[in-house]
Amino acid sequence: MTIQELKLFSAQIRLETAKMLLKRGFGHLGGSFSIVETLSVLYGAVMTIDPQNPSWDQRDRFVLSKGHAGPALYSTLALKGYFPLEWLSTLNDNGTNLPSHPDRLRTPGVDATTGSLGQGISLAVGMAKAFQIDHRPNRVFAIVGDGELNEGQVWEAFQFAAHNRLSNLLIFIDENHKQLDGLTKDIMNPFDVRAKMEAFGFRALRIKGNDEALILQTVTDCLASGQASCIVLDTVKGQGVPYFEQLADNHHIRFANESEAALKAAIETLSAQVAGKDAR
């Protein structure tokens, strides 16, 4: 995809995510919106995948360690053709294939079951280590939340990845500055995440997480570096929709009154963008 097409893809992912959350009436909007551009770049321009063959052995793997952003991943997968778009309206329905948190046994295209924070990154590191042992070309991409960095297990996984020089693994940290109960700096100050990752042995970069061109360029550079790499994404929780960006408590939203109206307005705006192929 060209950068313009990636921007359109981002708008489509955000639109489908908004629609599924409106249909459900509640959900993890903030952390879903903050990773939209990264999902767009990965699935639109980076990953070697075949949506018609989700279990293809040669595919790259994606692990959403911050599993509560499942809706954004589902939108991405549906738009790529892993399953019909109509499934999106079944989010969290009884018996659905799209549970709130990704389940590899239920959803085509989901490579790892996640949701208990801190654990997905270990799965990703294990996958990358397995590919390294066999000198296979598959790459592994993982998104970890900045709130998730509270979990000790992620630091165990980071140490292992850097120590084993897993250059086939690219870790994203979605630094949207908020977790369920408030600002990360108030609950458990993460300090300088990029510097911490560098101290852990990574090639660590920090970039704006809403710029497809910049994300793509940085990913390309990291993959070519031959080093274990980490991209810290400077994002906004609720990214892409000003009302939700400014909403203080935007981790999990029950849509009613003002927030419901804002979500409907966002859907209108995004629909117009997508229809007019004018993503921004």
Partner: peptide, 26 residues
């Protein structure tokens, strides 16, 4: 040596990594 991995004193990560490895066929 290439198929034996010392995960260090980090049992939680060892279990997670082993599961991840198994998802690729190990």
């Amino acid at each position: 040596a290439d198929r034996c991995i010392n995960a260090g004193i980090s049992e939680a990560n060892m279990m997670g990594m082993a599961a991840g490895m198994s998802l690729t066929g190990k």
